[in-house]
Amino acid sequence: MSTQDRYDVIMDPTDTWTVWDLVNDEPAMFGEHVLAGLTQAEAHAARDVMNDAWRRLRQNALQKHIDAA
Rank of each mutant, 00 (worst) to 15 (best):
Met1Ser: 14
Ser2Ile: 03
Thr3Ser: 03
Thr3Met: 06
Asp5Gln: 00
Asp5Lys: 04
Tyr7Val: 02
Tyr7Asp: 05
Tyr7Cys: 06
Tyr7Lys: 10
Asp8Gln: 07
Asp8Arg: 12
Asp8Ser: 12
Ile10Leu: 13
Ile10Trp: 00
Met11Ile: 12
Met11Ala: 13
Asp12Ile: 01
Pro13Cys: 02
Pro13Gln: 00
Thr14Phe: 03
Asp15Glu: 11
Thr16Ile: 04
Trp17Arg: 06
Thr18Ser: 06
Val19Ile: 10
Val19Tyr: 02
Asp21Gln: 11
Asp21Pro: 10
Leu22Phe: 01
Leu22Met: 15
Glu26Leu: 15
Glu26Ala: 14
Pro27Tyr: 03
Ala28His: 10
Ala28Ile: 08
Met29Leu: 13
Gly31Asp: 02
Leu35Gln: 06
Leu35Ser: 01
Gly37Cys: 05
Leu38Cys: 05
Leu38Phe: 03
Thr39Pro: 01
Gln40Cys: 11
Ala41Gly: 02
Ala41His: 02
Glu42Ile: 02
Ala43Val: 00
His44Thr: 15
His44Ser: 15
Ala45Ser: 14
Ala45Val: 11
Arg47Ile: 05
Arg47Gln: 15
Asp48Ser: 09
Asp48Trp: 04
Asp48Gly: 11
Met50Arg: 10
Met50Glu: 10
Met50Ala: 14
Met50Gln: 10
Met50Phe: 08
Met50Asp: 01
Asn51Tyr: 07
Asp52Cys: 13
Ala53His: 09
Ala53Trp: 12
Arg55Ser: 04
Arg55Lys: 11
Arg56His: 06
Arg56Leu: 12
Leu57Ala: 09
Arg58His: 11
Leu62Lys: 13
Leu62Arg: 14
Lys64Asp: 11
Lys64Ser: 13
Ile66Ser: 07
Asp67Gly: 01
Asp67Phe: 03
Ala68Asp: 06
Ala68Pro: 05
Ala68Met: 08
